[in-house]
Amino acid sequence: MIFIHCPHCGDRNEDEFAYGGDVEHRRPDDPDAMSDAQWCEYIYCVPNTKGWAKEHWWHVRGCSRWILVERNSINNELRRTDEDSDRE
């Protein structure tokens, strides 16, 4: 039960959140310009980083905001980011 820091609500148990994927795995801006192979790479090859990665988490049982969390997938170590997921 990892303890995720929500910039709005403070530290909360993992079960209040829904995982939203790796930040690097962004939906392409112009899918029509991509080849079938490139598109399949995006759809089916989802990153599963070993070590530190920046992730979207949705605080669905709290403030309902999307936040960014830095997590080390090896040992579940967390780093605070205090950022919302909303892209700049």
Binding site: C9, R12, N13, D15, V60, R61, G62
Partner: peptide, 10 residues
């Protein structure tokens, strides 16, 4: 006040 989980719901 706090919005949180309780008894498996919000």
């Amino acid at each position: 006040t706090a919005r949180t989980g309780m008894a498996k719901t919000t």
